[in-house]
Computed example of a mutant assay.
Amino acid sequence: MHELKDKELIFVFTGPNGAGRRTVAQMSGTTLGIRQVISYTTRPPRSSEVDGQDYHFVSAERFAEAEAKNEFIEVIEIDGNRYGIKDADVTDQLQKHGAVYLVLNRYGADMLKKVYGDRAVRIFIYADRETVQRREEERGDSPEMIQRYMSHYEEEMAYKDACEHAFENLDLAHTVFDLTKALDDHYLNRNLLDLD
């Protein structure tokens, strides 16, 4: 397990599926110069997902091999699919860049908070139920998949108050602007220009 140094930070983007947490995380990461640590999963990719960019999509056998070698910080299972973050990936990116981000559900966010304490900063991205459902439909998720995601909506939303920061994502540009400014002011102190 990597012992975090003073300036090393892990930003964890979480929130309901369809709230735009991945898009917000990627745009914020690009703006702030923070690299993403990508999780591993045994679930199949959605039509819009790219291997190595959204997740490392691996077979159950490959996942089990890595788990047997204790390569994961921790493993969780949701709806029969397994998810994990490799300790070596976090360590490597932190040593190179000083701050990293991950996009995780509440279980993964909680797990990283337990492991890294104050060095893990949870950022909750959310939108109202109707907006989330519309976005899932627009990205082409099947009705069954949408129903499964929406069945978790309330429990995902209940995690908001546990997070260090929460941003409602109704207008992407505003959300990213507000979020990057908050992270820069509170943690990074990179003095981003305020062009307003």
Rank of each mutant, 00 (worst) to 15 (best):
residue 45 P to M: 08
residue 47 S to E: 07
residue 108 G to P: 10
residue 176 V to S: 02
residue 21 R to V: 11
residue 29 G to D: 03
residue 146 I to A: 04
residue 65 E to C: 08
residue 65 E to D: 11
residue 179 L to K: 00
residue 67 E to L: 12
residue 84 G to V: 13
residue 39 S to T: 13
residue 49 E to Q: 13
residue 84 G to F: 12
residue 186 H to Q: 09
residue 29 G to A: 09
residue 5 K to P: 02
residue 51 D to G: 04
residue 53 Q to S: 11
residue 71 E to L: 15
residue 177 F to T: 04
residue 76 I to N: 15
residue 57 F to E: 13
residue 162 A to Y: 00
residue 129 R to I: 08
residue 148 R to F: 01
residue 46 R to M: 09
residue 19 A to W: 03
residue 67 E to I: 09
residue 133 Q to N: 09
residue 9 L to E: 10
residue 91 T to P: 06
residue 39 S to D: 13
residue 114 K to S: 11
residue 166 A to F: 03
residue 149 Y to F: 15
residue 3 E to T: 14
residue 18 G to K: 05
residue 193 L to R: 05
residue 24 V to E: 08
residue 68 A to G: 07
residue 65 E to P: 04
residue 41 T to E: 10
residue 58 V to S: 12
residue 158 A to T: 07
residue 187 Y to N: 07
residue 47 S to W: 00
residue 196 D to H: 00
residue 67 E to K: 14
residue 101 Y to G: 04
residue 106 R to D: 12
residue 68 A to W: 01
residue 69 K to T: 03
residue 113 K to F: 00
residue 25 A to L: 06
residue 34 I to R: 02
residue 189 N to H: 14
residue 25 A to Q: 06
residue 184 D to M: 01
residue 6 D to V: 10
residue 158 A to C: 01
residue 3 E to R: 12
residue 193 L to E: 05
residue 53 Q to I: 13
residue 63 F to V: 13
residue 67 E to S: 15
residue 107 Y to Q: 14
residue 168 E to A: 13
residue 23 T to M: 09
residue 138 E to H: 03
residue 66 A to K: 14
residue 6 D to T: 12
residue 167 F to K: 05
residue 82 R to C: 11
residue 157 M to S: 06
residue 145 M to S: 10
residue 115 V to R: 15
